[in-house]
Computed example of a mutant assay.
Amino acid sequence: MIGYYAHHQGAGHLTRMQSIAAVLDEPVWGLSSAPRPAGWTGGWTDLARDDEPWPEHVEDHDPTAHGVLHWVPRHHGGLARRAAQLTAWAADEQPRALVVDVSVEVAMLGRLSGVPTVVVAMPGRREDRAHRLAYDTADALLAPWPRGAHDLHWPDRWTDKAWFVGGLSRFDGREPTPAAGADDGGSPGPTVLLLWGAGGRSTTATDVQAAKDATPGWTWVERSPSVDGADDLWDDLQGADVVVSHAGQNAVAEIAAARRPAVIVAQPRPHAEQESTARRIDDWRIAVGLTAWPDAEAWPELLDLASTRGGHGWSRWSDGSGAQRVADHLAALHITPGSP
């Protein structure tokens, strides 16, 4: 059995877990503070939250343990219960490996319990002490992007054990279809699909309205994949002439699966995660990548540039086999007593 820890922030970690579990030929046990996904049939552990409520009597929570870790607040009962749940699960279930998506502390608890860990690597700057600890102790690093996208400055000890699987999406394997286009005898004009995620955003409704006002020939449709159904999202992607999206890994992977022209706009995240993705997409001319929401007057040219670049370049980011490639790597991962 494979364990899979999915962080509760946003919807992407759970989505990635489900995509991998769907093609893996062995049971997957989910662990998360987020609710169990609808339709999940594997084992599941509802982990205690370690971020609420705060104990009022503690003045200095020191959540980073003097800068060595990311989140271990002092005297937090939820953190203690969470650690006990994880170690008890490892002792009781004896998993073959634990995929950690993502938490330095969970990766360390798994490894301290003797469980081989596969740590999901993240875009951006990850050279801090805590990330080095998780990446160095991992048996493998799962990189859901193509080689060269975010690993150019990695040490050899990381690249040597990394699985560069490309973007992986719940829509991998589906056949994209051409958008209807503006001149279909009844369409009001080309369509922009504005795609938000569940992890929060800095772009305001005023920013969006200004972009709409600056592009009167375009019809803008907004939606959030965390609220609407997956099948509806695929249909919306297929119907869009240009997708405007945040630079979260799963949103980018889903746009790649749909092979849609896109403007990818980074939202503020720790470690410059989304900025790094947007820059690489733009550098490779896959789509238009921006590190911040642009001024309204820039939008007509940006949408035209995205249309010109088209959607074919996404094949460099994802070939549609990312989840299966992860499953193949996990099947081949055999850490036995005496292994280095």
Rank of each mutant, 00 (worst) to 15 (best):
S33F: 00
A34P: 01
A34H: 05
A34Y: 02
A34M: 06
A34F: 00
P35D: 15
P35Y: 10
R36Y: 05
R36E: 12
R36S: 11
P37Y: 11
P37E: 09
P37L: 09
P37W: 07
A38T: 13
A38K: 11
A38I: 10
G39H: 11
G39R: 10
G39E: 04
G39T: 09
W40K: 04
W40N: 02
W40F: 06
W40C: 05
W40L: 04
W40M: 04
T41G: 13
T41S: 13
T41Q: 14
G42C: 06
G42F: 01
G42K: 01
G43V: 03
G43M: 02
G43K: 02
G43Q: 02
W44C: 04
W44R: 01
T45K: 04
T45P: 09
T45Q: 14
D46M: 11
D46C: 10
D46I: 02
D46W: 07
D46G: 12
D46E: 15
D46L: 12
L47Q: 14
L47V: 14
L47K: 13
A48P: 09
A48I: 12
R49H: 15
R49F: 07
R49L: 14
R49Y: 10
R49N: 12
R49C: 11
R49E: 13
D50W: 06
D50N: 15
D50K: 09
D50M: 08
D50G: 14
D50C: 11
D50T: 13
D50F: 08
D51K: 03
D51I: 04
E52I: 03
E52H: 08
E52R: 05
E52Y: 08
E52T: 12
E52D: 10
E52C: 07
E52G: 07
P53A: 01
P53Q: 00
W54F: 05
W54E: 08
W54M: 08
W54Q: 07
P55G: 04
P55N: 04
P55C: 05
E56Y: 00
E56W: 04
H57Y: 09
H57R: 15
H57Q: 15
H57T: 14
V58T: 14
E59R: 14
E59K: 11
E59D: 15
D60M: 08
D60A: 13
D60F: 07
D60R: 13
H61T: 13
H61P: 15
H61Q: 13
H61S: 13
D62C: 11
D62M: 09
D62N: 15
D62T: 11
P63S: 05
P63M: 04
P63W: 03
P63F: 03
P63N: 03
P63L: 05
T64F: 01
T64W: 02
A65C: 07
A65D: 11
H66C: 03
H66R: 07
G67S: 04
G67I: 07
G67A: 06
G67E: 05
V68K: 08
V68M: 13
V68R: 14
V68G: 00
V68P: 00
V68Y: 02
V68F: 06
